[in-house]
Amino acid sequence: MRELNGAARHRIGFTLNGRAVSGWAEPRLLLTDFLRQELGETGTHVGCEHGICGACTIRIDGRAVRGCLYLAVQADGREVQTVEGLADPDGALNALQRAFRKHHALQCGYCTPGLLMSLTDLFARTPRPSEAQILDVVGGHLCRCTGYAGIMAAAREVAAEP
């Protein structure tokens, strides 16, 4: 049984985008804050901290989840994937990122990392998602800028890719 004192900081380690990382966290530290402040990986954004806007969405053990509803200590030992890990190994934008650019699926870009992670998750398990499946996933995000049209166009394009 792991028992962590609430007033102390504890060493937490996990795999982030394929690399082992570690840092210190009180039990109450949100994973979003751990990623951004402890590890300096600021690609994951915070928009509400109540689980609704989706800006903080990341993948943990191959599932898209809300980073703001996850404690850093709960991520200990897991596989975490964030937007910083999406580009192709040579650094080029991947197909989903390219489609986002082409279809003007982002304006301010604040909601974008979360959407990219949700859609990455969708395509990982459902390479040919239906319109309804795309809507279900995109429906878990708030975007204030784009009216979602570009996001849907980009997702449809990736869904149709051979």
Binding site: G43, V83, E84, F100, R101, G109
Partner: peptide, 19 residues
């Protein structure tokens, strides 16, 4: 023209105030 901004934003390398 496609946006130059996107090249950093899509990689999670934006420079927002809290970053």
């Amino acid at each position: 023209t496609e946006r130059t901004e996107d090249l950093r934003l899509l990689r999670g390398r934006g420079q927002y105030a809290d970053d």
